[in-house]
């Protein structure tokens, strides 16, 4: 299905531009053309379709649904909704407070917030197009796993003790009053309104991420063309244990979204970087960002922030080690 993009890149890079397929520059340009055309075509179609389907899903509904759920199911649901609910990270704090003041446990709210940046329609579409369905499934499982495990641990240490006082008070009031938030229910949407919503979403998302696609693919193309085949395999070996923490540390100061990092992953994997190490690097860039932490300070005390940070680091490393361990059986990477 995606061969048409390879042919398009063949024609443009080797035909029109007259580059050599064997040259480094030619390989990089080919990679760039193939990936950008494929990604944008996929994105336009998929964002529109997904937006149509989820036009009526909003945070208020999500919150109602999560309210009063059994704990364990709550972590999976929180994380799952984090993956599918349209949500901008600039709304993290109001969302956190909205959930908390409805009596939803901190762990379930954090499961939502941790999974949200890792899994979104753009990431899934790009992974599917560039790396295939097996990797996509593994990635989604990892994203949900990080959210669920993070949420579980936070509740196990009774994280609500270390909220900022006003947030802790709101949570207590809600748990005593059995969640007294009144919620308005919107009218069902007409097909026309759905279409309008989907077109707006499409414009909004593509307008926000197109730069990242170009930057990510350009980096990926550079790696693809100029790093020799098997370089990582030769230098970082068959995934020694220390490559995982090294990848996590390397990813921390890099703040990217999933869109920018996925074309880079494609190249890294292609050059023989082990699967688990690659995933750990990706999570560290996408899921842990300093701007986000600074925002969370408004509702959390330092102790809780520090705990969250440690939990995330440990989670990323576990993902790396586990996937390096099972990669041979998955036959990917």
């Amino acid at each position: 299905m995606f061969e048409i993009f390879t042919r398009l890149a063949d024609w443009l890079a080797y035909g029109v531009l007259g580059l050599q397929a064997s040259s480094r520059f030619g390989a990089a340009v080919h990679f760039f053309i193939e990936d950008t055309t494929k990604i944008f075509a996929l994105l336009v179609v998929m964002i529109y379709l997904i937006a149509l389907a989820r036009a009526s899903l909003d945070l208020e509904r999500t919150r109602n649904f999560l309210q009063g759920r059994h704990r364990l199911a709550g972590y999976f649901l929180g994380s799952g909704f984090g993956a599918v609910t349209p949500f901008c990270s600039c709304s993290s704090i109001p969302l956190f407070l909205g959930f908390t003041s409805a009596g939803i446990p901190v762990g379930i709210t954090m499961a939502f917030l941790l999974t949200s940046p890792v899994i979104n329609e753009v990431a899934v579409v790009m992974l599917w197009g560039l790396l295939g369905w097996k990797f996509t499934v593994a990635y989604v499982a990892v994203g949900v796993g990080v959210g669920v495990l993070g949420g579980l641990l936070l509740d196990a240490m009774r994280a609500e003790r270390w909220l900022q006082p006003f947030a802790a008070k709101a949570y207590e009031a809600a748990t005593v009053a059995d969640g007294g938030v009144e919620v308005s229910v919107r009218k069902p949407l007409t097909p026309r309104e759905r279409h309008r919503f989907a077109v707006d979403e499409l414009k909004e998302i593509v307008g926000r991420i197109w730069k990242w696609v170009f930057i990510g693919v350009a980096l990926g193309a550079g790696l693809h063309g100029f790093v020799p085949e098997g370089w990582f395999a030769a230098n970082l070996g068959a995934g020694q244990w220390w490559t995982v923490p090294a990848a996590v540390v390397a990813g921390l100061p890099l703040y990217s979204n999933a869109t920018g990092v996925i074309p880079v992953l494609e190249s890294l994997l292609g050059k023989g970087l082990p699967l688990g190490t690659t995933l750990a690097f990706c999570l560290s860039t996408v899921a842990a960002s300093f701007p986000e932490f600074v925002l969370l300070k408004q509702v959390m005390q330092w102790r809780l922030l520090a705990a969250l940070f440690v939990i995330l680091l440990v989670n990323f490393m576990l993902v790396g080690w586990i996937f390096n361990g099972i990669a041979p059986w998955l036959a990917i990477g």
Binding site: D58, L59, E60, R63, F87, C88, C90, S91, I93, P94, L95, L97, G98, F99, S101, F166, A167, A170, V181, Q298, V299
Partner: peptide, 25 residues
Amino acid sequence: AEKIMRYQVMSTPGVAIDGKLVHSG
């Protein structure tokens, strides 16, 4: 954040007129 919470806004930007929420998201 505390004031925004009182208005029960979960997706920003929200708009309140004379203390009454009229729009969000």
